[in-house]
């Protein structure tokens, strides 16, 4: 089969980009979407043209690096998978496929389809952790964790940090990402001591990065490759409200006591 690509090209962050059209060489329906791009890039290189830059690494849906908007949908047509787990058998011979980067002001474009998602790291640095130094942990079975809590924490913890939630949101809100981390740690007994300062610090960092507000349309959940539930956003809102009322004034997560 062959498809046609309408793909975003932009040589650097400062130069305006534009769509470019390419016809693929003959491809196999069992190729992954990224393998199809590999083939297109080999073809471009053989013609002396610059290959299309795109982010990818593990190619098994877990590292969170790949990041394309395919025909208007982050990570392509299927639910619960990342771009790297999208296969060409989902398209038909002769299709025109539009390929764009994740678009959001806090995710500036670096080149072509590659965007800068460091804002997520900065939110994590503000409070996405439990402050436990190496060596001062009690025996792992000293604190029993109910299976239900552990399972729910795991549901949230499997977020791969890809940013599809932001790309899908009309407001570029990062609430699903942030709420997944807040819920993962807040559901476990180990996470309780810092629960309030964590949610305050992470939400503050999120706002500072310029992510928009959440209006609960659910587009984030719909495109999440790990199908992280919108329920975690309500959980975080409750935690945030309670922390605002009870909060620890003047305290910032990350400003450690032991320094």
């Amino acid at each position: 089969m062959k498809v046609r690509l309408k793909v975003w090209r932009q040589s650097n962050p400062g130069t305006p980009g534009a769509f470019e059209e390419h016809e693929t060489p003959d491809i196999n329906p069992n190729m992954s979407f990224l393998e199809m791009l590999d083939v297109v890039n080999e073809d471009l290189a053989s013609k002396g043209q610059e290959p299309i830059a795109f982010d990818h690494d593990c190619r098994e849906g877990i590292c969170g690096t790949c990041s394309l908007v395919i025909d208007g949908k982050p990570h392509g047509p299927h639910q619960g998978v990342a771009t790297c787990q999208t296969y060409m058998r989902s398209f038909s011979d002769g299709d025109m496929i539009t390929v764009e980067p994740f678009r959001a002001a806090p995710f500036p474009i670096i080149r072509d389809l590659v965007v800068d998602r460091k804002a997520f790291d900065r939110i994590m640095q503000a409070g996405g952790f439990i402050s436990v130094r190496t060596g001062n942990a009690p025996d792992a079975n000293a604190i029993p964790v109910p299976k239900i809590a552990a399972d729910l924490a795991m549901d949230a913890a499997q977020c791969i940090g890809c940013g599809a939630c932001v790309a899908a949101c009309k407001n570029a809100s990062a609430m699903l990402f942030v709420s997944a981390k807040v819920s993962h740690l807040g559901l476990l007994p180990q996470g309780q001591p810092e629960r309030q300062r964590r949610v305050l610090a992470m939400v503050e960092a999120m706002d500072k990065e310029g992510f928009g507000a959440c209006t609960v349309t659910g587009s984030c959940e719909a495109v999440c490759p790990k199908e992280i539930s919108l329920d975690f956003i309500s959980r975080m809102n409750r935690d945030y409200g309670r922390s605002l009322l009870q909060g620890e004034p003047g305290r910032k997560a990350g400003a450690s006591d032991e320094a």
Binding site: I130, T134, P138, A140, I143, A150, A153, M154
Partner: peptide, 15 residues
Amino acid sequence: NIIDQCTAQGVPFAR
């Protein structure tokens, strides 16, 4: 020690 450390950090091991 690894299991203790990771559990304390909030790694949601199966229970």
